[in-house]
Design a binder for these strands. Sequence first.
DNA 1: GACATATTTAGACGATTGTATAAATATCTA
DNA 2: TAGATATTTATACAATCGTCTAAATATGTC
Lengths: 94, 94
Amino acid sequence: MDDSLFRALADPTRRKILELLTQHSLTAGEIAEQFPIAFASVSHHLGVLKAADLVAAEREGQFIRYRLNTTVFQEVVRYFMTRFGGDGEGGQHA
Amino acid sequence: MDDSLFRALADPTRRKILELLTQHSLTAGEIAEQFPIAFASVSHHLGVLKAADLVAAEREGQFIRYRLNTTVFQEVVRYFMTRFGGDGEGGQHA
DNA sequence: GACATATTTAGACGATTGTATAAATATCTA
DNA sequence: TAGATATTTATACAATCGTCTAAATATGTC
């Protein structure tokens, strides 16, 4: 389990970005609008998330569209379940 | 979901401590022995983990015994599953 | 090409973090 | 009480982090 993954998740702004991307993919500008910090700062956060492979970026004309990389989240869940979960699946699936 | 939780998980030494505690509870000294850093530094990490409620500490004579707080890990798993999981339970339970 | 829009990169700065050493606190034994 | 062991707390310091402004890069339009 990569170190950059947990470091990326440690910042609340980045977690919020991930939650936004849960709904649907968004361009960098659409993401940045949602936060009171500078666009460049959001761009930095997006870079961290991309480096951790939590999101993927794709150019779309002038824009750059970000989407969630759900595969990595499954790895995170697996990490916690195998190591600490035991009977801790959360009990909310059938 | 508390911010201190993710910040606590961001450090590799702390994650290693948690993995050690998966096997069985350990005293502060037994934990510190496993790392090449000063006892005081490990003690600091234990304080961070305790503040995040990831571990619980109990005095036992001269020693202080640490054990994993599995409840919080179940919350972490639930956080990821509800927000990002979708079909990402990991597929390793029956 | 020139200009506007979208986004990233570069450099700086204060805040937080991980570590170390030294001192303090707590318990046990004699 | 004194001394040994176990652990934490205090303080300091270098490294990392999150943010900012300014400059650079990429695309689209005229």
